[in-house]
Design a protein around this nucleic acid. Sequence first.
DNA 1: GCGATCAGCT
DNA 2: CACAGCTGATCGC
Length: 546
Amino acid sequence: MSSFAGRMKEYPTISLDRFDRENLHARAYFLSHCHKDHMKGLKGPLLKRKLQFSRTVRLYCSFVTKELLLNNPKYAFWEEYIVPLELESPTQISLVDEASGEKEEVVVTLLPAGHCPGSVMFLFEGSHGNVLYTGDFRLPVGDVSRMEHLHSGSRVKDIQSIYLDSTFYDPRFYQIPSREVCLSGISELVGKWIIQSPHHVVWLNCKAAYGYEYLFINLGEEFNTQIHVNTLAMFKKMPEILSYVTTNRRTQIHACRHPKDEEFFQGNRLPCGCTAADGTPLRIISIKPSTMWFGERTKKTSVIIKTSCCFCCYASPDFQIKDFLSYLQPVNIYPSVIPIVYFILISLAPTVTDAQPAARNYVDCTESNGEEDEEEEEEQQGDEEKVGAGQPEDISSQPPRWEDFFTTETLTDSQNSLRSQPQSCCSGMTGSQTPDLFSDEETAPDGFSLTLSGSLSNHSSQNMDSCLPDTLIIQPELDGQKQGDSETQREEGDDRITLSESQQSSDFDIPCTPESKVPRPDELSQLYRKLAAGEAVRALDYRTEH
DNA sequence: GCGATCAGCT
DNA sequence: CACAGCTGATCGC
């Protein structure tokens, strides 16, 4: 969750992705994408009232974000105050103090962020330097070097500060699987499932409002089908996605939602209530795309066996925040989440902070610091040389060099070459940014982890009662296998998956990224094949070798 | 009754 | 722990 307080030091009269508290006084608002954790205060009555009395305060975002936002009636009042901007099209904005008439000009450029439909980064250029606010972003390596507006001629612009959504700044998350890897894995799984019979259906358990469209499009394309969703309203101006979603429940791939959809699933029902026409029970697998794998437990459960592919364990060329930062080399980095590595480095403070006093800075700008330590921040901003030896909590008083957060390697030849030769910018994103955004890959969802659970329960009415609704067992060869009662299933499950005692209490103990072994593509492929075919997959197959 | 915050859950 | 939410309880207005 974003904990960014909403304002940047260089341009404190504008607010981004936060609309409450001090942000109520902003002269301009920016919304990077349409996820709730970046919309705090956006429907507040106070803000609404302020807008009604203002002639100059506006909300700037991408066309797609505008579309998605206004789709929700709670935000409909923004309609007359939104100014959608094209991607990669520098726009001058006057920041006016309506009381005094004082004015400041800033040029903003929206850059594709690759996080969800409409998501952008904001590049601000003005008298206080160039600053980049990333929001949530997920850019394939190399994309930043192709962004024209981050370059001036053949070199990277001087970036004073980067305001970073730093969930993945944490080195534990450096290696996130590429979109292609995730997609091909899911595709294979889906394909092997739905081909078995018309009653084999897939439920894509998508939590967030937006960000899975790339998955829908690819699955729809590959299997020549549409994905069932609750409503098409938000996509009405987005033909590329619209053709791959449907409200017709007669499809084998569902992404529909229900407040109690987990219960539905465990009762072998789809959230939409869809059942097969002839009364044959559906065979459902649930695929949970999320940025990271996380374990699940069900209360009052007797047996839970899940096979989880920890996509986040796999190496990826897709997203390397380290490369992003080392390419842009900002003077300051303001992550909105304090990475663990920071504290490690702080504990080594003399080594880190004494080295190069005038070097670039890392500064905490999370909510608690940003809201309450104004004076300290001002002091720190004007005195970058000050590198003290404070306590770990005293973050802003002793910024270590940003390079030290990573292995201090020099740029590789290829990086240097990228740096000096900006290429033409992202194809397809330089033109009109009407909501036909999905023709391009910039709007891909996050990397996926996948929790796969084959539901075996109550496929036949006579043993409905004996099957616990929360018994989830990987058991794909349903058709060829005699289905026993839940006790039998448990034994089968135990045969298939080796569980230690601790694993039983918390599902699998999935390793974190750094210790993870990186599977080869053929191993991945093998894994998916096994999962889809129902072959035994031992937990240890996923474990590291430490 | 509404909004904000928090715990709990997925 | 994390994602990006949702629900329900509690509290203040």
